[in-house]
């Protein structure tokens, strides 16, 4: 029953995305941004990596900017249109609602990511690539995007309007994805082993780099899964908080 409810909420949110034109704009902006960064922010033409590293290395940054735009209306619109009252008075759990919403945002992130498959195909025809590695990197990037979606959705659940939801989740996502805790720790507290270990364990970028390096550490996969789980939990709490 839970899965059916999740699917119901996912279906509703997923369809709603396509009712607005913003999602098409976001699809275009993401694909164009990813391409610009890949081609011009690193030496792609002269040093085409077999794992398309030049493409993947910018994904956390791009995702941190795009994902808040995807999740901003997940909850804010429910408040705005007074639909939350109806939704929460239905025989389904809050967890199903939060999960469905998160999965919808994640699915859109997946569609965005797939948009770059054409690029992979073209480059793959022209130069030899390690396709297994790239496919794995796509999965890991999808996982990373999922964790940002979950965090962003959780943050936006605390906000009543779209703009506040966007700005606050943008700030959180950027801090999460761009702040390299481990390099700060290395700079300021290189001798404190605990701080070093902690900063490394929570360094989003470091964990993502660990995943796409070809040597995908189980711990890094677990990191993103745990972030998703924790963010969903916070999301449910946020709904509870709003309700009370």
């Amino acid at each position: 029953m839970f899965l059916r409810d999740v699917l119901t909420c996912w279906g509703k949110e997923f369809r709603l995305y396509f009712q607005s034109r913003i999602v098409y704009l976001l699809l275009f902006v993401y694909a164009a941004m990813a391409a610009v960064f890949t081609l011009y922010a690193s030496d792609f033409y002269n040093n085409t990596a077999v794992n398309l590293y030049q493409f993947f290395r910018f994904q956390p940054g791009i995702a941190a900017m795009i994902v808040p735009a995807l999740t901003m209306r997940l909850w804010a619109d429910e408040y705005r249109h007074n639909t939350l009252e109806v939704l929460l008075a239905q025989p389904i759990s809050y967890a199903a609602i939060a999960t469905g919403k998160f999965l919808a945002a994640w699915s859109i992130a997946g569609i965005m990511l797939v948009s770059s498959a054409g690029f992979w195909l073209i480059v793959g025809v022209m130069v030899p690539l390690d396709n297994g590695w790239i496919a794995a990197n796509y999965l890991f990037t999808f996982l990373m995007a999922g964790s940002l979606c979950a965090v962003s959705a959780a943050v936006s659940a605390f906000c009543y309007n779209v703009l506040a939801a966007f700005l606050s989740s943008l700030a959180v996502c950027i801090v999460l994805a761009a702040a390299r805790f481990s390099s700060w720790a290395e700079k300021f507290m290189p001798d404190n082993l605990l701080i070093m270990q902690l900063s490394k364990a929570f360094d989003f970028g470091q964990q993502y780099n660990d995943l796409i390096s070809g040597q995908a550490r189980f711990a890094a996969v677990a990191y993103f899964v745990l972030v998703i789980g924790a963010a969903l939990w916070v999301n449910i709490i946020a709904v509870e908080y709003k309700r009370s």
Binding site: G132, Q197, A201, G214, Y223
Partner: peptide, 19 residues
């Protein structure tokens, strides 16, 4: 979650070689 992440990073050394 933090404790889990931290412990996993210390304890789990395994990996998939996807190359």
């Amino acid at each position: 979650t933090a404790a889990l992440i931290f412990c996993l990073n210390l304890v789990v050394g395994g990996y998939w070689d996807v190359t």
